[in-house]
Design a binder for these strands. Structure first.
Lengths: 243, 243
DNA sequence: AGAATATCTTGACGATCGTCCAAAATCTAT
DNA sequence: ATAGATTTTGGACGATCGTCAAGATATTCT
């Protein structure tokens, strides 16, 4: 058990919390108060787990509200009070579930990942021909820019933040890797449907598509109506030359 | 003449200031007090110009201090007082030369551009063979990541900010265009030295190299010793296939 | 030199930030 | 129902933010 600072309470790390620890040092890891006298052992295990689940479920709920706020305002202008206002709780509760702001945002980043990474997998596996895959990919690409621009600008924002804030780097790198894998799956599938293999590396492939996507996003948010069409055109020309 | 708010003074837009106006609406454009009774005309022109020059020279001086701070802390954590501390002035002077924080940072972004854009031109024009150009390009690329990582992470930070802050978009888009042109010049030169032409569009070429650079930067800042070597290797493999 | 202007310092302002805590409210187990 | 644990509230704290303006200082012009 860990006694924390001025407070005389005892603390424990929940399962979900340990996962959220990441690279951070001794600075406040989210912890929960428990009774100082521990129950012997077994029968409390189930109830114990339920409590942890409930705890991390609320963490995720709050993280979603935070994501909403972050996507709207960007990292630089997002405050804890603003986040709480988007949730159904008050600002104080955030420090009950998160040790500090960095902990919260790390949780956001991690949660965000799950929503992103499998985005194109359905299309990839369903397609039976290069044309079909191309069509589905282009369609989904445009749809993503059109409907989820706010969330994606947040991703680029957070990735940039990781260039300054060490605490974000591991999570960001992991997401980056996942996205790279996703792009690679699409390209590999596209290649194999033509009996080929991609002609560039995973890294280069991801760099290319990520760069194009990022540019399209900026143009789209700036009100450029042709941004999406140009992206589709570019990808349609490019994909067959690399896979 | 424009009378501003509660203050009874009159204001005028200096030359350098008009340039800095950009896209912003009626929100404070940097302006200078002048005597309310205007001098007739000619002989004061030279002195007038000198004053404007001195004014914008100081703006640039302060913008450089701001860039230093931004590169160190990132946009989200950079305050005006911190910027002033990096300069030889106190924080109040910033509102003498800039109408507000956004105005200052826009000025920074614009000033930053000039330092970036011609970076590879010397190498490009000097090289007499593909090998020579490749060698120089790779060398400069690695040198940039190694020596100017802080400034470049700022660029990615500010570009991300422009996804949220409309005021930055025009300047960011302009810089992006300049960088695209720069990459294109390198690739075109490389191609022509082999009697060819680039086989991909400007946009795709920039997306590719920008994506690779960004990734390398993140890895490098995370302490990955192989980041630069991997970038060089990737570029060395890629450039001949696209130009 | 003295007056006028330009530049800079200094301290204050209200707002808002992240954090913390005591108490209220809610839930759980007996 | 009651006690104890958990969860939530809401206000307070010190710090720091961008902005502003009055006055001190430096510069320029006559």
């Amino acid at each position: 058990m860990i006694s924390q600072g001025a407070s005389g309470h005892y603390w424990r790390r929940g399962d979900a919390v340990i996962r959220s620890l990441g690279v951070r040092k001794e600075t406040g890891v989210t912890q929960r108060k428990i009774e100082t006298t521990r129950r012997p052992n077994r029968p409390s295990d189930r109830i114990e787990r339920a409590r942890v689940d409930k705890f991390s479920a609320r963490r995720i709920e709050l993280a979603e509200a935070a994501l909403e706020t972050l996507a709207e305002l960007g990292y630089a202008r997002t405050s804890l009070r603003e986040i709480a206002q988007k949730s159904e709780f008050t600002h104080g509760v955030l420090h009950y579930y998160f040790s500090d702001k960095v902990d919260l945002i790390c949780c956001c980043v991690r949660h965000y990942k799950a929503k992103c990474v499998t985005r194109y997998d359905q299309i990839t596996s369903a397609a039976q021909s290069r044309d079909e895959l191309m069509k589905g990919f282009l369609e989904k690409l445009g749809e993503t820019v059109r409907d989820e621009a706010r969330m994606h600008r947040l991703w680029y924002d957070l990735r940039s933040q990781s260039l300054f804030e060490e605490a974000f780097r591991d999570d960001v790198a992991e997401i980056d890797k996942s996205l790279e894998d996703m792009v690679w799956r699409v390209a590999s599938r596209f290649a194999s449907l033509g009996g080929r293999q991609p002609v560039v590396s995973r890294g280069a492939l991801y760099a290319l598509f990520d760069g194009l996507f990022q540019r399209c996003l900026l143009r789209h948010l700036s009100g450029d109506r042709k941004a999406i069409a140009d992206l589709r055109e570019e990808v349609e020309r490019l994909l067959p030359t690399v896979a």
